[in-house]
């Protein structure tokens, strides 16, 4: 069996002087797997994603991402792993307002030579190709600023940005919370299809348990995060 994309053991985390936020005995995301992670507000979802992405340093336990033990790496090394191997989609898509649609989709390639190398040719062309696959194929629209797009269109730009350069892991942090049910389901289907096509593992985080059926596996963070239980007790 191949090594998982993400494997966490005995992870404990608390901000300086604060109560423990995470106490995870075990968590894993397989390569190419589509995992649904459910949890209410305050359950530590964003903190867990920050630890996996290497933005937050773990104090104890192990966080293994694509064979790299994040707890033993420097901040710069963790940043490089995030830049080269992770794509992130936010709740509000968080596009850069002053960049065009194409430039937003191509943004990770500015920071990662590995992603540029993976694209192979012209980064803007690859961004346009990805956007076209996601349903944004109007060349005039690609040159517009993202703030001029509809919410649905912005969502696709955010997905293209996460997928460009073929990262092995795509993290989606509540990306459908602002959408109606139809748009939400279409977006999840599209994202799953693209992740499957590139072979990326998809970690989809949401508080909405109804979405669980659309993924390979579902985990409730409240159940696996012992810190939440302790605090409640």
């Amino acid at each position: 069996m191949s090594e998982p994309a993400v494997e966490i053991r005995d992870l404990r985390f608390a901000y300086d002087g604060g109560p423990p936020l995470l106490d995870l005995p075990a968590f894993s995301l397989g390569r190419g797997e589509r995992l649904f992670l459910r949890g209410p507000s305050g359950s530590g979802k964003s903190t867990l994603l920050g630890l996996i992405a290497g933005v937050l340093p773990a104090r104890s336990g192990t966080v293994n991402v694509l064979g790299h033990e994040m707890t033993k790496l420097s901040g710069a090394a963790r940043d490089k792993i995030r830049a080269d191997h992770l794509g992130v989609i936010f709740q509000m898509f968080n596009l850069v307002p002053y960049l065009s649609v194409t430039a937003n989709a191509a943004l990770p390639c500015r920071f990662s030579s590995a992603r540029r190398k993976a694209v192979g040719g012209d980064v803007s062309e690859e961004a346009a190709r990805l956007l076209a696959r996601l349903g944004l194929d109007d060349s005039a629209l690609l040159k517009r600023r993202v703030v001029d797009l509809s919410v649905g269109q912005q969502q696709r730009v955010a997905a293209a940005r996460a997928l460009i350069g073929g990262p092995e892991i795509v993290i989606a942090d509540e990306p459908t919370s602002a959408l109606d049910a139809d748009a939400r389901d279409r977006f999840i289907a599209l994202l799953s299809e693209e992740a499957e096509r590139t072979g990326a593992a998809l970690l989809f985080v949401s508080h909405d348990a109804a979405l669980a059926s659309q993924f390979d596996r579902a985990i409730d963070l409240v159940e696996i995060n012992h810190a939440v239980g302790r605090e409640a007790a």
Binding site: V55, A83, D84, F90, N94, L107, P108, S112
Partner: peptide, 16 residues
């Protein structure tokens, strides 16, 4: 701050 956060998430390192 949001802009910086986006850039960091999309791969920008402290040096960037």
């Amino acid at each position: 701050r949001r802009e910086m956060s986006i850039l960091r998430a999309t791969g920008a390192r402290p040096g960037h």
